[in-house]
Design a protein around this nucleic acid. Structure first.
Lengths: 268, 268
DNA sequence: TAGTGGTCTAGACCACATT
DNA sequence: ATGTGGTCTAGACCACTAA
């Protein structure tokens, strides 16, 4: 019957008791999820919001609350002026593996594209994480990571200028970025330490990622150590809607049908 | 002046032109963020929503949209019947490092608490990721990870029963969990491969995490390899509001003031 | 009992993309 | 011009916590 004309009340009491009084939007999400899995395929557009809210007998705001959840799970993509589409499964994005230094560098050069490079005093927060005094000069390289043409992450790489004594100061923005990256590579990175947390994209990153401000992102903070000291910090924001970050020793892992992810929901 | 009686219109045009027409809720988020950073401290309760919406001259729904963003960023905690509190910085949670097998096992035993253990046929999705046929028997151990008394993650560890031939079938739930974990340890895990993505907690996990359904979580999927074959898959859901997942070689990393995280916003 | 956040409604208007 | 999702309003009632 698909997205039928059922009202929410009709589907809420599978048994005789409504029991715990599940919120409407949550129940709606479940119904939509089941419908999408069984009767829709990737890229297909759902009926519009006014239509859906009418069919389920709820206000549009309530329906939107359900769609918000599904979008957060990466199951939906909403495009203004177009409609609501069933999303493709998330792409697995390798994040810093255990590749050898050379391979990693070549890899990075391929996938990351420098946006700009600035040098200025460290903010208080940045100074803390880099172990500097507030106001110390820091090079910041902004880069964009694209996979098959689509932007998946924006990164700010912060390097204390004190760590790169051989960098000519006179070079301009475009060349300076290359200089910073080259010198950092020459330092020889001993180890990397990463953290992942949830965040939202500010205006600047959002623009680079071609998403509206407030878009949920996975914030990956990487600390690069060289010669026992913290040489650089990179803050990368990955689009949470389309990205699944993958870690692991390259090749050592057993790859079995990684294309179809097991969601926590599907398993339980 | 703090959370003054300013209306949103009064703070929108710092220059002469409102320019890009930023949504009210987004601007509101920025104002609240600045206010929290400068005039509030961890654990402090903000004025209630009706009060705040009146002060800023917006509808309560609009204010709530701004609070939703801040909550997603882990800056706010909202408690029904209590109020809205300024959240503590996220806790760094070590996720599978490069500790030696013995240390890791001891560590796991300490922090993870078994909830229950079931055995049954694999769902289609699970069978795919484990490389089994649909319906093959799989042991599932549900565990809860707590840090200093608070639940931070719920996990489902799936092990094909074919991989544990020496497991007595007669043992009941509580003992079976121990048996599965012990046998898995004996197998000797060669490597681990992980992925991290954004998800929402279903009813079951939400209850374990002491959060309402729909709570955003970081879903960590770990594939355990033994003797070149995929021996087990663990799906762990970490509370995104309070957790920052940390990866890395234990001790190798340079630890500088990790207590105060650098948000993407603060740096840029 | 009073106060809080959570849910829900029925509208309105706007920004954007297509035709 | 039309149709889409995005924003915003002004209310209402509910569920929970505390005094």
């Amino acid at each position: 019957m698909g997205l039928s004309s059922l009202r929410v009340e009709d589907t809420v009491g599978q048994g005789t008791l409504a029991a715990v009084a599940e919120p409407k939007y949550w129940h709606l999400r479940t119904v939509l999820l089941r419908t999408m899995d069984t009767e829709f395929s990737t890229g297909q557009v759902l009926p519009n919001e006014r239509e859906l809210s009418a069919r389920f007998g709820v206000a549009r705001a309530t329906l939107r609350q359900a769609l918000d959840q599904l979008e957060l799970e990466g199951r939906l993509v909403r495009r203004r002026g177009i409609g609501t589409l069933v999303a493709a499964p998330r792409v697995g994005i390798p994040v810093g593996g255990r590749q050898s230094g050379r391979a990693a560098a070549a890899h990075a050069a391929q996938e990351w594209k420098v946006v700009d490079c600035t040098t200025g005093p460290a903010t208080a927060a940045l100074a803390r994480t880099l172990g500097l005094a507030e106001g110390d000069q820091v090079h910041t390289v902004r880069r964009l990571r694209t996979v098959q043409g689509v932007a998946v992450a924006a990164e700010s790489l912060h390097v204390p200028s004190a760590a790169l004594p051989h960098l000519a100061v006179v070079v301009d923005g475009g060349d300076r970025a290359r200089g910073v990256l080259r010198q950092l590579e020459r330092l020889g990175v001993d180890g990397e330490s990463r953290s992942v947390e949830l965040g939202v994209a500010e205006a600047a990153e959002a623009a680079l990622l071609e998403r509206p401000p407030g878009t949920p992102v996975l914030v990956v903070t990487t600390q690069y150590a060289a010669a026992g000291r913290l040489a650089a910090v990179a803050v990368s924001t990955y689009r949470a809607d389309t990205c699944k970050l993958t870690f692991g020793e390259s090749g050592a892992a057993v790859q079995v049908a990684s294309a179809v992810p097991v969601s926590a929901a599907a398993v339980s």
